[in-house]
């Protein structure tokens, strides 16, 4: 069995998520070859062939050209699986490759069970097994779902990869993340507000609980998108990744992007009306309650 792994490169650097793809290949017992649009000074530690396309020529984002490069590697390697991270690069590119080859794509695999791919659904509250019906298939992996045991090793055999063509999306550059006025990464206690707090007027209730515990206020994405809390407080994939001693999630259902940003906290308390909310999967204590009733009462008690 063979897996063709698609490495990522951003802002002059190889991204570490290639090692999650290698871990996945190990799990399904596949030999690997790797594709990277990058540079020779930044290759992953791995075995097998590394198809290296020059990023200066093919750009960090040019989906049409990157697709053609991957298709060229596919025709050389004839892999059973073409594996991406389920990242902003992977979910953008993977369906293009799958559609070109007219093969199945299984998105955001979280686990391999008896050789089958388990994926999340319904906001991560439920799971499904998805089976490709085609001989080859494209797979994207949930960030953090697979990790290597031990240090990555090996030196790949580098083969230059080139295709002709232009592309139809122009990459104009990056815009850096907004400056953070709060460094949640250093906080020992974080109390975060989610959609379950109901409205902007209720945010001070959560802020008061944070203060009573001597912690900082955090927030989930919907709360930031709605303008209830500043972006600098956002915890999750597109905000800050935190690992405080205590994390209190108030009315946060636990979308995967949020969980990825806080699940390494030492101790997690979740307050949520929905007993089945995915936040329960990572919480040490799940309090089933309306946060707008519980939080003020808890703050009151802590102040005494």
């Amino acid at each position: 069995m063979k897996a063709l792994l698609i490495a990522e490169y951003r802002d002059g650097k190889l991204l570490e998520n290639i090692y999650e793809l290698i871990a996945f290949a190990g799990k399904i017992g596949a030999d690997t070859a790797t594709v990277l649009v990058g540079d020779a000074a930044n290759v992953p530690r791995c075995s097998g062939t590394l198809y290296l396309a020059d990023v200066a020529k093919y750009s960090e984002y040019n989906p049409e050209l990157h697709k053609q490069l991957i298709l060229a590697a596919v025709s050389k390697e004839n892999p059973d699986y073409i594996v991406f991270s389920h990242s902003s690069y992977g979910w953008d590119l993977a369906p293009r490759v799958a559609a070109s080859l007219k093969i199945a794509q299984v998105s955001e695999v979280v686990k391999v069970i008896d050789g089958n791919f388990e994926v999340g659904c319904c906001n991560a509250k439920m799971r499904r097994i998805v089976k490709p019906s085609t001989a080859k298939s494209v797979v994207t992996l949930q960030a953090g779902a697979f990790s290597m045991e031990g240090e990555p090793q090996g030196t790949p055999t580098v083969v230059a990869l080139d295709v002709a063509g232009g592309g139809n999306v122009e990459f104009l550059g990056y815009e850096p993340a907004e400056a953070k006025d709060v460094d949640l990464g250093k906080a020992e206690i974080i109390v975060s507000a989610g959609r379950g707090v109901g409205k902007k007027d209720n945010i001070p209730v959560i802020a008061a609980l944070a203060k009573a515990l001597g912690g900082e206020l955090g927030a989930s994405r919907p709360v930031v998108d709605a303008g209830w809390v500043e972006h600098s407080h956002q915890v999750g994939t597109t905000g800050q990744t935190v690992s405080p001693k205590l994390y209190v999630a108030c009315g946060i259902s636990g979308a995967i992007q949020h969980l990825a940003g806080m699940k390494k906290s030492d101790f997690i308390i979740a307050i949520n009306k929905d007993k089945d909310a995915p936040i329960g999967e990572v919480a040490d204590v799940l309090v089933v309650a309306d946060v707008m009733q519980l939080a003020p009462a808890l703050t009151e008690k802590l102040r005494k």
Binding site: A98, C121, K125, S133, S137, A283, D284, L286, L294
Partner: peptide
């Protein structure tokens, strides 16, 4: 091109405690 015949809740991995009841108690 693909098929799915299953739908189920995730296996609870953590040994987290679930607290339910009235607010004062909680």
């Amino acid at each position: 091109l693909s098929a799915s015949n299953s739908f189920y809740p995730p296996v609870k991995s953590g040994g987290g405690v679930v607290l339910e009841g009235d607010v004062a108690d909680l």
